[in-house]
Amino acid sequence: MASIVETCDLTHRYGSNLALDHLNLTIPEGAIFGFIGPNGAGKTTTMRILTTLLLPTSGEARVAGVSVTREPRVVRRLVGFMPDFFGVYDNMKSWEYLDFFGRSYGIPAQQRRRLIGELLDLVDLGHKRDEPVMSLSRGMKQRLSLARAMMHDPRLLILDEPASGLDPRARIELRELLRELRAMGKTIMISSHILSELAEMCTHIGIIERGKLLAAGEVQEILRTMRPHRIIEIRVVSGAARAEELLRTHPDVLELRREGARASTEAEAEPLDDETGPHTLLVDFAGDEHALGDLLALLIAGGVRISHFAEQSSDLEDIFLHVTKGIV
């Protein structure tokens, strides 16, 4: 897949503060790229450089092969930017807001009129066409802002914290809208603190901290790479002591914990009593699907009665905490 964003040793300093430290980032065309990092990690700085609002101290950034420093006007045609705030004009109607930005991108009047109608319908604001922008709800303003960023039909949409401050319904609507935009062939770079949402909609992610890219790639690949083993949750109705015995001696079991216990200290204490059960055991398991089936068969054959046996899904939040642990 061709890449639409490429940065090479991208560095930016605010005085003595190093905001970006030799960032090498690639975003494939057509991806929804989630840009994750704690506050002050360098997400907004990267986005501002890619939108030509900020010149890097050193290094290079390209959008669709075009340098953001050498040909900023060409880059502006390729990029639609939605900042983490919504700039409001007094006394302006929704259609006038889009019309103004359409003019600013040099879109001819006739095409502009058609586009305004289409985009307002796309973001489900067709009925608010003549309403003052100030009267729209926050979710509506975000959608109008997205329509504004789409006015010049950019190939890359850069959205900085688009879901911040939105209620759950508005978030779901925004997520659906982004999926629709991806289906239209747009590449979307999005930063957010709501990691569960990013995991649901993103095809790729990049994790940044203190201006350094810690991990980047396809979501599934990152999940697989960052967590080579899986966590199995087993709820034992009876035979808990026997289950622990079998699990401790199993070659694919890396660690065994009782739910609510801290690491192995309590696991090595008294054997579990079925009278106080049922008990839940958490197993760090290194084997594949077959080995997992064998483990279940072994436990059942060993007389252990199980009411729940399932893999805990590791999510972006786990990966984020795992990758950024101890650095902030």
Partner: peptide, 16 residues
Amino acid sequence: GEKERQTYDLLVASLL
């Protein structure tokens, strides 16, 4: 005023 309304970046990032 554009800076206060936070619309300045949108203008500068456009083709104006």
